[in-house]
Structures are given as C-alpha cells and as structure tokens.
C-alpha cells in the first residue's frame, strides 16, 4: 500500500433526510464511527439547501471536535441561479476543504488545494495530472471504473503525490438529469415538487414491468437499487495504491458498517468474516460489485479470497 494510511471515509448524504435525522446521524458518526473524513453538504438539489444549512456549522464543529476531517461537497449538477450561488458560497470559504463535483467548482477552486469528487469524469492519468497541477489532492473516482483501470491509474500517477478514493459501500450513483424524477413520479414538476423526495430516505425504488428491482430515484439523480459492497476487494484496492474507502450513507446502521470495513483494514477480521457480517445487516437490497470486475454494474461476482 505504498506508505499511504488507509482510511474509511463517509460520503455526503445524497438523500433528502429530515434535518433532525440528518443532524443526529452526524452526531452519532462523530461520537462512534471509525471514519477519518466526513463529506458534508447538498450534492443533488439546491432546493434542499435551506433545510440543512442552519445545521451545517454545528455538525461540522462536532465532527471536527471528534477528530474527523470535514470536507464540503459541492452540487453535482449546476445550471440554475440557486445552484450557482450555492457552489460559489461553498467554494468561497477560504479555510475549509472542498470536494468539487462539477466544472463550475473546478473554476472556483483552481489554484487552491481541493478534492475532486466522483461526479467529475476522471478516467485517466492525464486528467489526474492536469487537475493535480490546479490543486487537486484527492480523487474520489467515478463508480464505473473497473479494477484494471483503477490499477493503471494509480500506477501511472504515482509521482504526483495525490490520493485516490473509491466508493465501497452503498447505492451507486448512475445518472443525473435536469428533470426531477421524484416530482415526476408524483405528477409534479421540479419547481412544484413540495419536497416529496423526503419520503424516501434511501431513494424511491423503481421496479421493471416484470417486477424485478432495478433502480432508485433521488430527485434528479438515479442510483442503483442494490448496494455496492467491495469488502472482499479492499485488500486488492489497497495493494493498487487506493487509500481511501468511501461509504455512502444510508438509513442502515452506518456505524456498524464503518466498523466492519475498519476492522478489515486493521486486519482484525478477514474479508470472509466481514462479508458474513455485512450480509447479516440486511440493508434492504442485494449487494453488487459488477463495475469492479468490468461486468454489468448490477451483477455480483464472488471474490477469489485467499
């Protein structure tokens, strides 16, 4: 693992959680979860911003006091005036760390140290090198990148002094749109949504016409129905040079999830034992890991554990 300290990180809450739940969730993470870095902020819809913004400072302070590094995530898709203002204000705070998720945030953060989020298309060494010259220090890579490419990307950027992060748990972000599909499901429009997305704290499940579980809707975002689980691939990822492992927050017990992943990194339990424990958590959907193996993302491949 080339001298990099392996960390568990907690990605931003992607869903429209009730503000009390949102605050309590982070307080518990601060107190109990073995995660080193916590990403905070609204990534999906600028309309949700006002609900969380009053709590942001308190939550960030609590996490920082607990020894966590707090990074503020920016919106993934920016087009409206509200969106633009939101990104500008996140990027304007000179002292805090920012993870950029679209081109406008790249413009604002150019020349200052920052993280690059999974919504920026970083697939190759030349893109990494370019962004690193502009201040990028950590890259959370797009979820669809297969193992072979992850390995090549790490190997070909070894001299740049950047760190790589990949999502290893939770529903996988698959697409963004201008249209709000939550509103559409409720026969409303994005402007008249009445925040119906708050009914689905893990996303609104879409099934196929033959009743197979398929996708999950989160406002303008479409995610997988199943939950990514790369617990059995952790050591391989570490060996490639990936040092940060991101958990995507869900309503299941994220402290327990984080503890299982941490225990594997610490070699306290092996991947097989960890996999059994994760299965026992019954997160509400099957696990998948297809993207890692270069197969259909929603598929599952049994890892070859030695």
């Amino acid at each position: 693992m080339r001298g990099k300290v392996a960390e568990i990180t907690l990605g931003p809450v992607l869903f429209n959680w009730n503000p009390d739940r949102w605050r309590d969730f982070y307080f518990r993470i601060a107190d109990e979860a073995p995660v080193a870095t916590v990403y905070l902020g609204e990534v999906i819809c600028s309309k949700r911003g006002p609900f969380f913004e009053p709590l942001l400072e308190t939550v960030a302070e609590r996490l920082t006091a607990a020894g966590k590094t707090v990074v503020f995530s920016t919106l993934a898709q920016v087009m409206l005036k509200h969106d633009r203002r939101m990104v500008e204000s996140v990027c304007a705070s000179g002292e805090s760390l920012v993870e950029v998720n679209d081109g406008s945030a790249l413009l604002y953060m150019r020349g200052r140290p920052h993280h690059v989020g999974p919504y920026i298309n970083v697939y190759n060494e030349r893109t990494v090198a370019f962004l690193a010259r502009g201040g990028a220090r950590n890259f959370c890579l797009p979820v669809e990148i297969p193992a072979a490419v992850l390995g090549a990307l790490c190997a070909n950027t070894d001299s740049l002094g950047v760190t790589f992060e990949v999502q290893v748990f939770g529903r996988v972000p698959l697409a963004l749109s201008a249209r709000c599909y939550h509103a559409r499901a409720h026969s409303r429009t994005k402007d008249s949504c009445q925040f119906v997305c708050e009914n689905d704290p893990d996303g609104l499940e879409l099934r196929t016409l033959d009743d197979g579980p398929f996708l999950a809707i989160n406002g303008i975002q479409t995610l997988s129905h199943d939950y990514l689980n790369l617990i059995s691939e952790l050591s391989e990822l570490e060996a490639m040079g990936i040092s940060r492992f991101r958990l995507a927050p869900h309503t299941c017990d994220m402290v327990a999830i984080a503890s299982i992943f941490r225990a594997v990194l610490d070699r306290h339990i092996d991947a097989r034992e960890a996999a059994v424990r994760l299965d026992a958590m019954q997160v509400g959907a099957p696990f998948s890991n297809g993207f890692y193996y270069g197969k259909a993302g929603g598929s599952w491949t049994e890892a070859a554990i030695d």
Binding site: Q77, V78, M79, D102, G103, N121
Partner: peptide
Amino acid sequence: AGASSPEGIRF
C-alpha cells in the same frame, strides 16, 4: 463534458 453553467463553461 456536461458543462451546464457559465462558470463550468468558462473553466
């Protein structure tokens, strides 16, 4: 490239 805002395009 998905550049949908003036700032994104200016980048």
